[in-house]
Amino acid sequence: MTDYYFENGLVKLHYYKFGEGPQPMLCFHGFGMHGKQFISLEPALGKKYTFYGFDLFFHKQTKLHDQSLAAVKKGISKQELAALIIDFCAHLHINRFSVIAYSMGTHYATAVTEILGRRIDEYILAAPSSVYPGAIIRLFSKNKTGNKLLEKLVLSKRALINMLNAIKFLRLIDKVGRNILYNEIATAELRFNFYACFTYLRFLETNEEKLIKSLTENNIRSIFIFGKRDKMYPPTIGKAFFAKLKQAEVVILDENHEMINQNFVSTLSRLLL
């Protein structure tokens, strides 16, 4: 595995490259993770794919050129994200590619698929938040009052902890989800990144009609992987969507939200090889 930077007018993007196969796969990790999240796929799938794992915005070594509060509030559009991917692919002479994503990263992969579907071979989502992000994400990202409340909360570690405990008490997230989020608010920088992830990506909300059209017209293989014990994004969130997307492959693992493990690798390898 090697790591690199790609820079354009928006961002200095840090990414990892692993595998040596002829088919490029762009990887979008979950909240609080990093570009190495899918490294466990390399032993089984590294002869078929070359993986490019990005540190996403407000994570690890990737830095926007402007990370001011004003820039965060302005947000990024699907078209701007697609333009970044086009620039990245041009830099590495990538024509067609697949995408794989987990949880928060599924919003990136879905936006790219809506816009650039003509270039995509496979669309693989695990714990697909983009199918139905839920009330909490919509409150803090799309709702002006909710987002302002989150802005106030990030100034106080104690307030954020109390909020997480309240959300868990109301059973809007489970213990696993609460602990993942808790680990991301320990410092002022992490709390800012927590706020920024909700706010900056608010325009990446899935347009079901456009996504289904892109997947169907471009004959993109789509695989959705759920954890049977995932309380954040259980299999039931996809029921209405999958009724419209007839050719989707839906896989349910005996896992909770933290599912990128050997069971995940073995299952996905059987599907892709």
Rank of each mutant, 00 (worst) to 15 (best):
T2M: 07
D3P: 06
N8S: 09
L10F: 15
L13V: 13
H14A: 06
Y15P: 06
Y16Q: 08
K17D: 10
P22K: 06
Q23D: 13
M25N: 06
F28A: 02
H34G: 04
K36R: 13
S40H: 13
L41P: 10
P43D: 04
L45S: 08
K48G: 13
Y52Q: 03
Y52I: 03
F57V: 14
Q61Y: 04
Q61S: 06
Q61G: 02
T62M: 02
I76N: 02
L84C: 01
I85L: 14
D87N: 14
A90H: 13
V99W: 10
A101P: 02
G105E: 05
T106M: 11
A109K: 04
V112F: 12
T113E: 03
E114N: 08
D121S: 14
Y123W: 10
I124C: 02
V131P: 06
G134N: 03
A135C: 09
V154K: 04
V154T: 09
D174T: 09
D174F: 12
K175H: 14
R178M: 12
N179L: 05
N179G: 04
Y182C: 07
E205L: 09
N207R: 01
L215S: 04
K228A: 05
K231V: 11
K239T: 15
K244E: 00
Q247A: 13
V251E: 07
I252S: 04
L253G: 10
M259N: 05
V265L: 10
